[in-house]
Amino acid sequence: MTKKTKIKDLTDEEFLHYGSLSCAGCGAILAFRHVLKALGENTIVINSTGCMAVVMQMAVPKIPYFHVLFENGPAVMSGVEQALDILGKRDDANLLVVAGDGGTADIGMGSLSGAVERGHDFIYLCYDNESYMNTGGQRSGTTPFGAATSTTPVGSVIKGENRPMEMRKDVPEIMIAHNTPYVATASIGYPLDLIDKVKKAATIRGPSYIHVFSSCPAGWRSEPKDSVKLAKLAVQTGFIVLFEHEDGKRTFQHLPKKRKPVKDYLELQGRFQHLLEDRETIEKMEEFVEKRLEWIQR
């Protein structure tokens, strides 16, 4: 990683107008705010349907912005990129595709995989709040095991998402398997780390993928004030691991020396309330987190 950005270095310029429709304490818009700060005004945003697309209505972005269909962000970007190229205007703009976890891991996976495989020069940002939040918090391919969502509710028989944790769709690893030149995970708990990774992505000639963990008070039924805290706790408990992957090598950021107990993270979220007394599930989660930390640092 190149020089680390400090808070004082950051521009005071904002690229989103006030009055946007994001919920109080929204993690995704905090991520989007800093991503645009990192990229600056010469950026064209292609935004798939999702929370951000709805929130961007009423001319919130100050940069060229195109709200596209749920699954064709990367394909639309491919057209923009190849058009700018043939018109001799390719260097004018960063091309940023933005989508949520559903738009990326589920419905848009084909389009993303194709655009990366073709090697277009763009940055893909997935804001992962682990459910289809725009439509009310239905379960997605990245919803964690145990989480209560509107389509994996807590019932008397089945309690929350019962698809095992290790079967959760791990998009950053999928992108690494594509030999994507630059893959990074980030979290709104560490905005400066996110900004540095976006700046790094902007220097890559070819596709780069950034997966930003972004809390969602509405969907997780957490306090709006805890959005940044939760995004840090997710890292401190090992639930998510911050890393960069480039030239076949992985470097880690904010790797917890001593992992906090998973329960510290779960107890601040309504979607996990039904698990707090379930010692066996908590055991399994601790085990999963340890195994994964081991595997990812292999």
């Binding site: 269909l69 394909a75 923009v80 389009s111």
Partner: peptide
Amino acid sequence: MIRVESEHSAMSACVGASLAGA
């Protein structure tokens, strides 16, 4: 030429390219 991975993406790319002026 963009050798896309589906027809859904073929038309999506054409829309993107057209809105970029091509």
